[in-house]
Design a protein around this nucleic acid. Structure first.
Lengths: 243, 243
DNA sequence: TCAAAAGTGTTGTCACTACACCCATGG
DNA sequence: CCATGGGTGTAGTGACAACACTTTTGA
């Protein structure tokens, strides 16, 4: 046996599923920023600390389903995007028992998130300025944030924060909020349209005191998937063309 | 409870670690192609079928350590690159018990791989033409192959197949073997040198009947890491510059 | 008629491709 | 001296950034 110490003896390793949930909400100045819901731990260890939503994996539930259920229980919402992030399993990440956590990350629609349930044991916080969380959860959220930001640059996840139809300005606002930097409206428009994943609805959004912008819909059937994840909620696995 | 059926009742979910191991070996025509070691299952279920190296996670062993140990046991080698791939946990992926597998993928040095141990229960096969494997292992290897090929295009993993010092032609041969397509030597050279991750050793490789090529070393300290994986064997996690 | 955002045109830069060409070595 | 790869030069292309400019609306 390679290991010197036996901190957990022969106690069985437990398997948990946690989810990092992101939504866009206006901050105090009114600009949208990333928020994430946390739950207060109601038992030892780390009682009272804030932690990622999650729980033990039921023997007959799929990993992704467990993540979606957790999300629904804490926020009352359904994910528009859900993907496995990473599995964290350091021997000492939880005192007492060995816990291996399969972590998912999810995006929920912003306007729905505004109506999300909360309570004394559920609290939404800005994802970039987290308090000290239980276990290694700070590190987990940081990694999820990195993944989201990387993915938003080459993929089309941004639409998951929006409703069915949206303007290019709305989409750009979302990407800007995630990346925390302004984008050139003209270039953004062209890049998006060139991707072939946006579909004109034919309608426009009137009411503002300027030229009414066109409304677009995300076209999931267009082109091939960039990343054939083994499992992905909004982008089902697809075959790449044979070489 | 969301699930209708209870195929596993209250039997505890078991946690396994498996590893997809890649090495380059010459095929029958002498050109290097990707090979991977498999182990024969010596017990039910799926007795006799070939499967990925792996086993149950010991309570006091790190996930990555378990993957490395598995690799050593089946091949006698140490990985030059080791990274978590994905966690597979479908309820029905193994008959009988619920098994969740944390899968790693690894690269081993080609000349070492040539001396790898084998036996009646360990067999190396070309990674692109696998036989029918146990469980969902075919799908897992396919996903690992995709990851390797994607990563080789923007990262510098290729050097993990080689020894300490290597020529640009050797490195290019590796990348060509992984991607299964020829690359322009001139452009490959420039791209690699421009990356700043190669370091001249000052020596040359003489003996061939042509101009002796320079030898390079991989410089892990150069520049920032592209992907801050939570855990990575050859590329430790690094912070990105603050924006 | 004017502010404000939608939307278009144009130019420069940079990375990458294709391919012509010169260089150094062993036989 | 010549075949063989090592190594350099250079023109073309396409993606993207920067930014000037025109268009359409509501007040």
């Amino acid at each position: 046996m390679p290991q010197q110490t036996q901190p957990h003896g022969d106690a069985p390793t437990r398997l948990a599923v946690s989810t990092v949930i992101f939504a866009l909400r206006p901050d105090h100045s009114g600009r949208p920023v990333l928020w994430t819901p946390l739950v207060r731990r109601t038992r030892e260890p780390q009682l009272g600390l804030w932690a990622l939503p999650g729980g033990w994996l039921p023997p007959n539930e799929e990993l992704e389903a467990a993540a979606a259920r957790t999300l629904r229980l804490t926020t009352g919402l359904a994910p528009k995007y859900l993907e496995q992030l990473y599995t964290f399993g350091e021997v000492d990440r939880s005192p007492g028992v060995r816990v291996v956590s399969v972590v998912y990350w999810a995006l929920v629609q912003s306007d729905e998130a505004a109506r999300a349930v909360a309570g004394p044991n559920v609290r939404w916080v800005p994802a970039d300025t987290l308090p000290g969380l239980a276990f290694d959860h700070n590190r987990i959220v940081e990694y999820a944030l990195w993944r989201l930001r990387t993915k938003v640059e080459y993929a089309w996840i941004a639409h998951a924060f929006l409703g069915d139809a949206f303007t290019l300005a709305e989409l750009r606002e979302v990407v800007e909020a995630v990346l925390q930097r302004p984008l050139d409206p003209a270039n953004f428009r062209r890049t998006m349209l060139a991707s072939g994943r946006l579909h004109e609805t034919g309608e426009r959004l009137a009411g503002a005191r300027h030229r009414p912008p066109k409304l677009y819909r995300y076209d999931s059937s267009a082109l091939a998937a960039v990343v054939p994840e083994p499992t992905a909620h909004t982008e089902p696995m697809r075959e790449r063309p044979a070489s």
